[in-house]
Amino acid sequence: MSRIAKAFRWAAALVRERKAQLRLSVRVTVAVALTFVVAQFVNIPLGGLWAVLTAVVVTQMSVGGSLKAAVEYSVGTLGGALYAGAIATLVPHTTEISYLGVLGLAVAPLALLAAISPNFRVGPFTAVLVVLGSGAIHIGPIASASYRVFEVAIGGGIGLLVSFLVLPARAHVLANEAAADMIDLMASSLHGLFAGFTRGSDRATIQRIQRSIGEAFARFNAIATEAGHERMTRFADRNDPQPLARALLRLRHDLIMIGRAGATPLSATVQPRLGPLLTRIAETADDYLRATGASLIGRRKAPSLSAVNAALDNFAKEIAALRRDGVTRELSGDALEQLFALGFALEQMRETLKDLSASVTECAQS
C-alpha cells in the first residue's frame, strides 16, 4: 500500500511540475483531431496533411506564442504561395532541368527574404510544396497554391481557437514564473559571488553561474515577447513585461560587475572591515530576491528594500571611514580600482533593485 501511495505522490508531483507541458500536449492533440475532422469534411487533397501540420505548429505553449506562430506561418505561406504559384505558372517546366530552374527561381528569393525577416521563414518551404506538390497531386500551380493557403487557414484557425479555449495558458503568467526562476537563481548565486572578496573565486564557477543566469534571462525574454503579442488581444491583462525585463537584465549586468570585481580577494588591509559587511549585503539581497520571486508568482506587492538599503548604507559608511582614516592612501592602484568598481556595482544594484521592486508591484496591480 505504501508503494502505491508513493507512486501516486510521485505522479502528482510530476503533474504539478509539468503542468504547462501536459496542457500543451492536450491542446495539440485536440487541435490535430479537430483539424483532421474538418479536413475530411471539406475533402482536402492528401487528407488535409498540411492543415494538420499547421495546427501542430500554431498550437504553442501560450496564447501569445500561438498568435506569433499563426502570424508568421500565415504571412510566410501567403507570400510563398503567391510568388511560387506565379513563377510556376509563367515559366514553362516540362523536363527535369526546367523543373530544377523553376524550383530555384521560386526558392532563392524567398530564402533571402526568410533570412531577413522571421515572418517569411516558412516561405521557401511553401514554394517547394507549390512547385513540386502540383505534380504530385496532378493539379496546376495556382490550384496547388490555393490549397496550401486554404489548409494553412484551416489549421492555423483551429490551432488558435484551441489555444484560446482549451486549457489556455497566458504568456504573461508563464513570463512571471520564468522571471521568478531567474530571480531565485540570482539569489542563490550571491553568496558565491561575494565570497570572492574574502576567499577568492574560481573563474570557471563564476562563468558557469553567469552563463546559467544568461540562459534563464533568454528563456524569460522569449516568453515576455509572447506576452507582448497577448497584449494586442483582450485575453491578457495590460501589464507590459518590458520594465521587468529591463530590470532583470540590469541586475544580471550588476552581478557580472560584482563577479569581475571579486575575481581576487580584497586587500588584507581592508578585508577585515569590509568582509562582514559584504556578507551581510549578500544575505539581505538573497532574502529580498527570494521574497520578490514569491511576490511575483503570487502577484503581490514587492517586499521592502529596507534591509538591503541598510546593509548598503553601512558599507558606504565604512568606505567613507576608511578614507577618513587614511587607509585608502596606503592601498595599491589595483586595490583602489577594485574598491571603486565594487562601490559602483553596489550602487547600481541598489538602483536596479528599486526598479525591480516597482516592476513587481506593477505586475501585482495589473
Rank of each mutant, 00 (worst) to 15 (best):
T59P: 01
L105E: 01
L112K: 00
G123W: 09
L167F: 11
F194T: 05
V122M: 08
S306I: 10
T35Y: 07
R3E: 15
S117E: 02
F220T: 05
T225G: 13
G214S: 12
T77G: 07
D334G: 01
H229D: 12
Y83A: 06
L277D: 07
R324Y: 10
R18Q: 14
L110N: 01
F125R: 00
E226Q: 14
H138L: 14
N119P: 00
L277E: 07
I319H: 02
D334V: 03
C363Y: 15
Q271L: 09
G157E: 07
G48A: 08
I206C: 08
V102C: 08
L34D: 02
V63I: 15
V56E: 02
D240W: 06
I281Y: 04
N239W: 13
N314E: 15
R234T: 12
A81C: 10
L248H: 05
F194I: 05
H253Y: 09
A86I: 15
L249A: 14
A179W: 03
Q210M: 13
A33D: 03
T89V: 07
D313C: 03
L78W: 10
D286P: 02
Y99V: 13
L100W: 06
G47Q: 14
W10R: 15
R203F: 11
L278V: 08
A111Q: 00
L160D: 04
P141M: 08
H172M: 13
A302P: 08
G47L: 10
L53Y: 04
A321K: 11
L296M: 08
V130W: 06
Y83P: 09
R27L: 11
R18Y: 14
R199K: 12
P118H: 01
F344E: 02
A69L: 03
R300I: 09
A7I: 15
H138A: 15
L167A: 10
I183G: 01
P109S: 00
M349G: 03
D286V: 00
A88I: 09
H93M: 06
Q210Y: 12
V270H: 01
T328E: 06
S188T: 08
I223F: 06
S267P: 02
G228L: 14
N176C: 15
A145G: 09
N119S: 09
T29I: 07
F220I: 03
V131L: 07
I44Q: 11
A81P: 09
A171Q: 05
A175E: 06
A187T: 01
S201D: 07
V52F: 01
G65A: 06
A169S: 14
V149H: 05
T35G: 05
V360Q: 11
I158H: 05
A51W: 01
P45Q: 12
V75D: 02
L248R: 06
T94C: 03
D313A: 10
A169G: 11
R324E: 12
P265D: 04
P168M: 07
I97W: 13
A345R: 00
A108S: 02
G101R: 07
R16V: 15
F315S: 00
L110D: 01
S117H: 04
A224D: 09
F164C: 04
S163V: 04
A179K: 03
S98E: 12
A222Q: 13
F340W: 02
D313G: 12
P92C: 05
V166Y: 05
